Amino acid sequence: MSTLDLIERDPDAFEIVALTAHSDVDGLAAIARRCNARMAVIGDAARYNALRTALQGSEVEAAAGETALVEAAEAGADWSMAAIVGCAGLRPTMAAVKAGGTVALANKESLVSAGALMMDAVEHSGATLLPVDSEHNAIFQCLAGSSLSDVARIILTASGGPFRTRSRDEMRAITPSQAVAHPNWSMGAKISVDSATMMNKGLELIEAVHLFPVGLDRIEILVHPQSIVHSMVEYRDRSTLAQLGSPDMRIPIASALAWPTRMETPCQPLDLATVGRLDFEAPDEERFPALRLARQVAQEGGAAPAILNAANEVAVAAFLKGAIGFLDIAMIVEDVLNRYSAPVPSGIDDVLEADAQARTQARHVMERLTA
């Protein structure tokens, strides 16, 4: 929606090849009509007839299901926004990469689960991969063509989420409604919970390892509650460059949409006099063990990141339904990592198999937990 907001401000500059959604037929059909999209795809195959009915009288082609999502990614767009949440976005994102265009990556789970395979596909297809997560986009801007060999440290900033100052005991009683109320960003429920557990930052750490291969030991996390400094790059001469901006996803999206130039956005200008202060603190891996787990699997590599991501998706979904507690999320992920391992993936099918097995393991862990 943020991408469309920017595109619709300059409609003559863009032609919409394909739009996709998971289940919102009415929303997808309305946008497809408004943008004169060639194709609209609903991920839920059972909603195909509803979408086709909603598009009657238009020239928009209707399609549905996972295969159609992949076909949309292969439909010949010069620029694709990969924003399907979770591992469900892996096949379409890989299809867009293999098509060789420019892929703006907002689906961090794809790169977490299949990082080596995706970066290899980028190299072989000649695709351009532009990070859209505010932190990775900030790093991309701070590098600005500099050599990675000159980088001393990459510093990912984190808001710390809504429970940054809570004790472990206090976090035991956290409810889903509290966890989805992020203090700075407007995000979906799953990403908001990931931010609250700081798993989101752990996933971004793994993502950064692939996007900016300077070595895991040179990528650090720093808590910055105001979410104004989106990340920093320290060079070997000890110059540190930071990218600052209001917490509005349209800013990093615009950076990727207009790259290598710039475009106007309706976002609020940054008023540092009003902000007044910028605070920073070290993350606490005892209160937020997701950070430790993410660094562990980033070091291990192979299928471990896919296992972590899958177990986390299952645990977060269970928490949002009220089936488990807030602190149980990281505990379940760690239990799955200790119980299950898989061979190094040689293809997407291997990644998805590890993902499926990890989900099964996570459900078994939850059954024992709630018995």
Score class of each variant (00 low, 15 high):
L278T: 08
D279C: 14
T265N: 04
L211P: 03
K321N: 14
F288L: 07
D271F: 07
K190H: 11
I251A: 08
T261R: 14
A303I: 06
A282Q: 15
G202T: 04
A290G: 06
R262I: 09
F319E: 04
G276V: 09
P213A: 08
E286A: 15
V333Y: 02
S231A: 15
E334S: 14
R287D: 14
A256I: 01
A294V: 03
S231W: 04
I191V: 15
A317T: 13
A323W: 11
G202C: 07
R287M: 12
V297D: 07
S231I: 07
T240Q: 10
V214A: 11
F280N: 08
N312R: 07
I324S: 01
P247K: 05
L320F: 06
T265H: 02
E264I: 10
V214T: 13
V314A: 13
D217F: 03
E313K: 08
S255M: 09
R295G: 15
A290P: 00
S239P: 04
G202P: 02
L244Q: 09
F326S: 01
Q243M: 12
H210C: 09
A208M: 02
E264H: 13
E281D: 13
K190S: 09
M249A: 11
G302R: 01
P252A: 10
E264M: 13
V333L: 00
L272C: 09
S255T: 12
P225E: 03
H224K: 02
A208F: 00
V214Q: 07
V229E: 02
G325A: 12
L320R: 08
L327H: 05
I307E: 03
A311P: 07
R236N: 07
G325H: 12
E207T: 11
L320N: 09
C267Q: 02
I251K: 05
A330H: 13
V275R: 13
V297K: 08
F288M: 06
L257D: 08
H224M: 04
E264V: 14
E334W: 10
A254Q: 03
L293K: 02
E207Q: 13
G276M: 08
C267E: 04
G202I: 06
G276S: 06
E281S: 15
P283T: 10
I191F: 11
A311T: 07
E286L: 14
D271M: 05
E285Y: 11
G188D: 06
G302M: 01
G276C: 07
L257M: 10
M331A: 15
M199D: 05
P266A: 05
S192K: 06
A318K: 05
H210V: 10
Y235M: 14
M249R: 02
V223C: 04
M331G: 10
